[in-house]
Design a protein around this nucleic acid. Structure first.
Length: 393
DNA sequence: TCTGGGGTCCTAGGACCC
DNA sequence: TCTGGGGTCCTAGGACCC
């Protein structure tokens, strides 16, 4: 196997305005028009809509103001999943080295394919043509020596483009680019840098790392430097990753009484635990997330002595956490309620997943959780009747 | 731009143990 | 009796991504 080291071998392939493009593909009268996929907020906007300033996560009022004639369609997740699967089949057909990033984006390493399939530009061009012909969607390909650079190249080439950054042109390519174009540089970091007059990667690269670190923190500073110097960023972690499964509900500004809040909590817990069991997982840490009418958010969490997939256990902990947070809620008005089960573990879960359906062990799990919660929040935190009432539920 | 839902990673202080 | 240093776990918050 011949591998070209130090060449631009990494492709970043990213579908353009994915959800909106699927809608335009399936409904010809939407083509060429500003299309927005969304319900309460904008999930995706076509490039025609983006031209008016429409962005993901934007609310309905802002959308109407910026682009009153936008065509808003409800999301069809099944269609997006099917389209994604078809595109990923083309990725897999292109190279065995595919690193999945999200539903609409992946990295492809084509370094070992030059004899078989030609140069990366040619492979990228063929990939774009196939996705267009076989799935009917526009896709942008960025090509560079590292994943990070390939991603940035793709951002510059969007929409429906292809851009290769040659190894000897990397600095030249990066220096004029705005820092916000980088993965991991969001609004907060970008504005902190802008306040010090730093807007481009060239500005950032010219500063000593210590100075940069004082502005944005050491990890971000290191990353900025590494990218500016064209070094690849290693994957973080190694070892068992901390993961979570969660769900949340925005409630709006309407005031809710305690019974309504408890009903919402019950629904959220039920949804999360259903997914936890479906994934054959167990989790140890219950995280309650609250947001208030001023949009500030807090979390309250509690770690159990052992991992569980048992709804009543998690519900009991969630109720205790909520009870402890009652004063803040009454003071500030609740507008979002979320719950996540963190420190999630898969596979090893089999014998621990079983007890929720059985009798004796279930009581044991509930008892463990109850003791932990009582120890922390006092004996009034749990009402035994509540636990018993949900055991059969 | 006044705001959904699902996540990940990082930091920092305090408790606790050896 | 008073004290150091290192490590891990828990909790809370913040930034960021799609």
């Amino acid at each position: 196997l011949e591998v070209w080291v130090g060449e631009s071998n990494i492709l970043h392939a990213d579908l353009d305005a994915f959800y909106a493009s699927v809608e335009q593909r399936d409904e010809p009268r939407l083509r060429g028009r500003p299309v927005v996929v969304g319900g309460g907020v904008v999930l995706a906007a076509s490039y025609e809509a983006k031209a008016f300033g429409v962005r993901a996560a934007m609310g309905a009022a802002a959308l109407r103001r910026l682009c009153p004639h936008a065509v808003v369609v409800p999301p069809r997740f099944a269609a997006y999943t099917a389209a994604s699967r078809a595109v990923f089949e083309i990725f897999a057909d292109t190279t065995p080295l595919v690193e999945n990033v999200s539903i609409d984006e992946a990295f492809l390493d084509v370094g070992g394919l030059r004899r078989l399939a030609g140069r990366p530009e040619a492979i990228g061009a063929r990939l774009r043509a196939r996705v267009r012909q076989e799935v009917g969607l526009p896709i942008t390909v960025g090509i560079a020596r590292t994943r990070f650079l390939a991603k940035v190249a793709g951002r510059v080439a969007k929409p429906d483009g292809l851009l290769l950054v040659a190894p000897d042109r990397e600095r030249e390519f990066l220096e004029p680019l705005p820092v916000a174009l980088l993965w991991g540089i969001g609004e907060a970091t970008a504005s902190r840098l802008a306040a010090r007059g730093i807007t481009t990667l060239g500005d950032a690269a010219a500063l000593p790392v210590e100075v940069l670190a004082a502005m944005v923190g050491a990890p971000t500073a290191r990353r900025l430097r590494a990218v500016a110097e064209g070094r690849e960023i290693g994957r973080t972690g190694g070892g068992p990753r901390r993961r979570s499964i969660g769900s949340q509900n925005a409630l709006g500004r309407r005031p809710r009484d305690a019974a309504q809040i408890d009903a919402i909590l019950l629904a959220v817990v039920d949804r999360v635990m259903h997914r936890v069991r479906e994934a054959r997982c167990v989790g140890r840490t219950v995280v309650l997330r609250l947001r208030f009418d001023d949009y500030a958010a807090v979390t309250r969490s509690h770690s159990l002595p052992m991992a569980t997939a048992h709804t009543a256990t998690v519900l009991a902990v969630a109720r205790a956490l909520l009870a402890a947070a009652r004063p803040i809620i009454e003071q500030r008005g609740l507008t979002l309620l979320g719950l996540a089960l963190a420190d999630v573990d898969g596979d090893t879960a089999v014998q621990l997943v079983l007890p929720w359906a059985a009798g004796a062990e279930t009581d044991g799990l509930v008892q463990d959780a109850s003791d932990a919660v009582r120890a922390r929040f006092g004996s009034d935190a749990l009402r035994p009747a509540t636990l018993l009432g949900h055991r059969r539920g």
